[in-house]
Amino acid sequence: MTKNPGDVPAPPPAGTGKGPAVSRQEFDALFATVRTWGRWAPADRGAWNRVTPDHVRRAAALVRSGTVVPMARPWNTVPGPDNSKPALHYMSDLGDVDPAEPSTHKDFIAVDYHGKAVSHLDALSHVAYRGQLYDGRIARELIDAGGARFGAVSALGALVTKGVLLDLPAVLGGKWLEPGRAVHAEDIVAAEKALDVTIGDGDAVLLRSGSFRRRQELGAWDPDTASAGLHVDAMPLLAERGIALLSGDGDSDVRPSPVEGLHSPVHALAVAAMGVPLLDNLDLEALSAAGAETGRYEFLLLVAPLNIPGGTGSPVNPVAVL
């Protein structure tokens, strides 16, 4: 039975595959292992520097049917357990302000997009670990009320590269991964084999847990309490493969966090250590259906964030072209 979005169900039980707890000392050693500081210029584009015109041409060659699949969730103005700061949308002109022809109709939108309700991009200024942004830059020296002077979303520009969908429910069985289910390196390798894909240099990895489908069928819950996502032990594999972007239908982190005292360890590893921007809260259901129909889980991916000087990210509607 589908619940109303405003209902607050009890937190779902944690899924299987949580994995061992990780100490902060172990996490810091892992952070140092995957860190790419000093590797690229400009540094505030981070891993997007990996993507060259050759990567774009190879990605474009993946297009066969020309099917376009947008992946943004609907603009969410309804409060709920996963939307504590609803987006705004209201009409500012109903065609009765100016009598001249033709009449026009205008609307206003606003959003505090970092969170669980809006499909968005995390730029490199969004996450600091132990006071340091990517490349070892000191966050307090570079981010203030005026915005970010390093790692702003305006430094990234658009990304066109090969996308790889890891459709884990299709591989592991079931309609979705239960909240709390951690995805480990061996799960990624198994998904590559089952879906006949290989994650390579400059690729974007999209992890489907089926959370959007679960929400549609069972109702909303607080994903800060429990969500399926990556365990930190998967990050060395992704670092070794040289990914340029990490994404999912959650925010990539499994919750509860496996790292003591750290609520979003994958964010810290991806953004602050590896310089890999994140795409959060995508709707991957249509892409999953297209993959099941065609047997293809690699595609041309286009991501064009808003050009916001000083911005820590941007709402975005990524597009897959098959």
Rank of each mutant, 00 (worst) to 15 (best):
M1T: 13
M1P: 08
N4A: 14
A10S: 13
A10Y: 02
T16V: 13
K18L: 12
S23H: 11
T33L: 15
T33C: 03
W40Q: 00
A43C: 05
D44L: 11
G46Q: 10
T52M: 02
D54N: 06
H55W: 05
V56E: 15
A59S: 12
A59C: 01
A59M: 01
A61C: 00
R64S: 07
R64M: 01
V69T: 15
P74R: 14
D82Y: 00
S84I: 14
A87N: 14
A87T: 11
Y90D: 07
Y90T: 12
S92N: 03
D93V: 08
L94E: 09
G95E: 05
V97R: 14
H105D: 02
K106C: 10
A117E: 11
A117V: 04
D122S: 14
S125Q: 02
S125D: 05
H126E: 15
V127A: 02
A139F: 06
A139C: 02
L142A: 01
I143K: 09
V153F: 07
A155P: 00
D167Q: 03
D167R: 04
G173N: 10
G173E: 05
L177W: 09
R181T: 15
D187M: 12
A191R: 05
E192Q: 15
E192W: 04
L195A: 07
T198H: 12
I199A: 03
D201A: 06
G202D: 07
S209N: 12
P223V: 09
S227F: 00
D233R: 08
D233A: 12
M235Q: 06
M235W: 08
P236N: 10
L238D: 04
G242I: 05
L245A: 05
L246N: 03
D249G: 11
D253Y: 07
V254P: 06
R255I: 00
R255P: 06
P256F: 05
S257L: 06
E260A: 14
H263A: 13
L269D: 06
V271M: 03
V276I: 13
V276Y: 01
L278E: 12
L279C: 07
D280H: 15
L282R: 03
L284H: 12
F299Q: 01
L300E: 09
V303P: 03
V303N: 02
P309W: 12
P309K: 12
S314M: 09
